[in-house]
């Protein structure tokens, strides 16, 4: 996993920093400026224990405006979305949502997204869910389909084309 040096000597990007703060305001989350670096978020972070994600540093860099550096760093993709940082922050800051917004900027700017994410996105736009219906394995090693189990067909959007257009539009725009 490539990890970019986060101690950059570049100038901070104040416009991107404002975008993040304005979006946080729109979705009623405290701005990154309120973080006082207590590190409580990091001490409970599930990804810190495994992959050295340190949410307080993410927030510190966002607060200072080093957004490009964060966007180019694979560590932003190691959050496992446990929401402990958001739950426990004494300042109501939300490192997990700051991370989402930084990754969202990556998608909007056409940067590569890792792993299965682009597959999931395409499958949502093509059939409504992140993956297609799979046969399930049983304990004795045979496979069964939904219909074999007496389950009704899985739901899907009724007008797939309209659905796809709206979802695509939503994915490719920032909230502010």
């Amino acid at each position: 996993m490539p990890v970019v040096d986060l101690t950059s000597m570049n100038l901070p990007q104040q416009d991107r920093r404002s975008t993040i703060n304005n979006t946080l305001e729109l979705i009623r989350v405290a701005k990154v400026d309120l973080c006082f670096q207590c590190t409580k978020c990091t001490s409970g972070c599930e990804a810190m224990k495994l992959l050295e994600l340190e949410p307080h540093k993410i927030v510190a860099l966002a607060k200072a405006g080093y957004i490009d550096e964060l966007m180019g760093n694979d560590v932003i993709w190691t959050c496992m979305v446990c929401f402990k940082c958001k739950e426990r922050c004494p300042q109501k800051v939300s490192p997990v949502e700051v991370l989402f917004l930084i990754k969202n900027m990556n998608l909007v700017e056409g940067k590569e997204v890792p792993g299965e994410y682009s597959n999931w996105l395409q499958t949502i736009m093509g059939m409504g869910m992140i993956m297609s219906e799979q046969p399930a394995l049983t304990k004795d090693g045979s496979t069964v389909e939904r219909s074999d189990l007496g389950l009704p067909p899985a739901p899907a959007p009724e007008d797939m084309e309209k659905f796809m257009n709206v979802v695509m539009m939503a994915a490719m725009e920032l909230m502010v």
């Binding site: 993709w77 979305v81 969202n104 998608l107 997204v113 979802v167 939503a170 490719m172 725009e173 920032l174």
Partner: peptide
């Protein structure tokens, strides 16, 4: 898919 777009997730 929040990682990709919170806007899309809300939608």
């Amino acid at each position: 898919v929040r990682h990709l777009s919170m806007n899309m997730t809300y939608y």
